[in-house]
Amino acid sequence: MSPIKEDYLKIIFELGGTRVKVSNKQIAISLNIAAGSVTEMVNKLLRDGLAKHEPYSGVTLTAKGARLAKLLIWKHRLWEVFLVRKLGFKLSDVDQEADVLEHVTSPKLLKALDKWLGYPRHCPHGGVIPGKDGHYSRESHVVLNDVKDGHTVAVDRFIDNRDLLTYLGDIKLDIGDVVHVVRHAPFDGPVIVHNLTDHTKLTIGYKAAHYIFVRPVKK
């Protein structure tokens, strides 16, 4: 399988494609590519039996596609843990390196790496690491942009996108931060939030707010 096709499987999985329908627009924005290219690759995934598509609704992974995606995610996120924890890489720099390493990781190396790292269950940007049995705790698929004004949520994970992670690093939004949504600016404007963890006010771009996943705050 080509690295490009693997990247599509990963991003569909990361966007919730085992449980919800993922649009071509979501995939295009996440991978920073043209919508036409997404349509072409999605059609290839359909022909290979790796995905299912519902017109005007979106794409989901088949059981076969989900199995392959979980394996790829396992490799990718383990290397991200290694790069951040052991080599001190910045979060925004690990995705490209992990992409290279995952494609040359044998099953033997993967298991040894997992054991050496202590079987981590989350990567540095909050994503769940499926593990060798393929089971994983459910990830949040609620994005910040969909949280109503006046609600308070905790930041759960970020999409694995270098530009996004660089941007979030610049505005100092971290995994685990608790934010209160003040308002959504009209006409696809930014989301204004109070970061209750750092006691700061943040203006988060419309596009970025679609790739910050959040969870309810436990009372």
Rank of each mutant, 00 (worst) to 15 (best):
I4W: 04
D7Y: 07
E14Y: 11
E14W: 07
T18A: 14
R19H: 13
S23A: 12
N24K: 10
K25A: 15
Q26L: 06
L31E: 06
I33P: 02
I33F: 10
V42H: 02
L46I: 14
R47T: 13
L50A: 03
A51P: 11
K52I: 15
P55Q: 09
S57V: 13
V59M: 01
L61C: 09
K64L: 09
G65Q: 12
R67Y: 09
L72R: 09
L78F: 07
V81I: 05
V81P: 08
R85I: 01
R85H: 12
F89M: 10
F89E: 04
D93M: 05
Q96H: 06
D99T: 02
E102T: 04
S106T: 15
K108H: 14
K111D: 13
L113K: 07
D114G: 03
L117F: 10
L117D: 06
P120G: 12
P124V: 14
H125A: 12
G131W: 09
V143C: 11
V143P: 01
V143T: 12
D146I: 00
V153H: 05
A154E: 15
R157K: 14
D163V: 01
L164M: 03
L165F: 06
I171K: 02
D174E: 03
D174Q: 05
G176L: 04
D177P: 00
H184K: 04
A185G: 00
D188C: 00
G189F: 02
P190G: 01
V193K: 00
L196M: 13
T200P: 00
I204G: 06
G205V: 04
G205C: 03
A208I: 05
A209L: 07
H210G: 09
Y211E: 14
R215T: 15
R215Y: 09
P216D: 15
